[in-house]
């Protein structure tokens, strides 16, 4: 059975490479720009790493208005750029429209799903990684009060917050303080306000704070470091930023997803379909390195490993905010 499956996969891959367009990648960023210290910048990081590793050039386009996004995607597609990577989930309708017009071009949709054969949709199970860091936060907290600082009050951030709250509750936290930073694009790039909210949460007794707010998080981590409490980073491994303060980081590998999409396309192995990356696929994880080794006690590490194993195996289910737009906590 397995052999048969692999043969099918190999055949499909061959078929895909036979029709695949030439490797000539392009990225379309959202209006917050490629240096937004958040989703877009993670994609940028992955593409830059690919460029450094392989020497492959790529083109990009930053929309100034949402109306330009469709134009940008179509401009690349009509000139034979492939794959075209779209980082902003707000453009999934635009991407779907253009992808239908250019069935021979490969597309990548990050953080949302476009159901077309030439589109690879990459989503992440943020709730799983957030659950584990929430658990670690609660187990490491003395006050049993933990904080969460999000960027903007949008579904994807609620998804982080909901997973974190479930993990924290499982770890015995009695008070989970959740705040959002702002309501405009700058919400993800406002370190000063992030620091203020962190100070406020610590004033309410929180001694571990998880920032899922892009560049705003830099201010949160700094404030927490100044006060001597614990902080949790997001997206990339931020443990190195404040060794001894950074309890861990909830890594979400958008950069790896972009890198892999580029790699697959270059090697002619690009496939469409949905990739939903969780703990089991290493799409999200908690970071343990020499910077936070001393902060994670053997008991905490064992508990985190157990949760990770159970979630990966499916025996422990973390509620996904996106499944019903609700959070039980």
């Amino acid at each position: 059975m397995r052999k048969y499956l692999m043969a099918t996969v190999a055949l499909m891959a061959m078929a895909a490479s036979a029709t695949a367009a030439d490797f000539n990648p392009a990225i379309v960023y959202g209006t917050s720009g490629k240096f937004d210290k958040s989703f877009n910048e993670m994609a940028y990081t992955g593409a830059e790493k690919f460029k450094a590793d392989t020497g492959s050039e790529y083109r990009d386009f930053e929309a100034q208005a949402d109306s330009q996004a469709e134009q940008g995607i179509r401009n690349f597609a009509s000139r034979g750029f492939s794959p075209v990577i779209v980082t902003n989930f707000g453009y999934k309708d635009q991407l779907a429209k253009v992808a239908k017009e250019f069935p021979d071009i490969d597309f990548v949709m990050l953080d949302d799903v476009v159901d077309l054969p030439n589109v690879r949709s990459v989503t992440f199970k943020e709730e799983q990684g957030s659950y584990v860091v929430g658990l670690i936060a609660a187990l490491s907290s003395k006050s049993k009060a933990v904080g969460f600082i999000g960027g903007m009050d949008i579904p994807i951030i609620r998804k982080f917050g909901c997973g974190y709250a479930q993990g924290a509750a499982a770890g015995g936290a009695t008070n989970i303080i959740r705040n959002m930073t702002g309501t405009t694009n700058s919400a993800f790039n406002d370190p000063v306000k992030g620091g203020e909210i962190a100070a406020s949460q610590m004033g309410q007794g929180a001694d571990v704070i998880f920032a899922a707010a892009g560049g705003t998080g830099i201010g949160v981590l700094q404030k927490v470091a100044d006060t001597g409490k614990f902080a949790i980073g997001v997206d990339s491994n931020q443990n190195y930023m404040h060794p001894g303060v950074m309890l861990t980081s909830m890594v979400k590998r958008v950069d790896v997803a972009v890198y892999n999409a580029l790699k697959d396309a270059k090697e002619g192995r690009f496939t469409g379909g949905v990739q939903s990356l969780g703990l089991a696929e290493n799409g999200v994880d908690w970071a343990l390195d020499e910077n936070n080794r001393s902060l994670i006690s053997p008991e905490v590490e064992a508990a985190a490993a157990k949760a990770k194993q159970e979630i990966s195996a499916g025996t422990l289910e973390v509620h996904d905010y996106m499944s019903d737009d609700k959070c039980p906590l």
Partner: peptide
Amino acid sequence: SSIMIYVLVNLIKEPGSMAP
């Protein structure tokens, strides 16, 4: 901006959509 985020995310968002 604040009102629109609230309305979009909580009241009139297409269910299951990541984007508000």
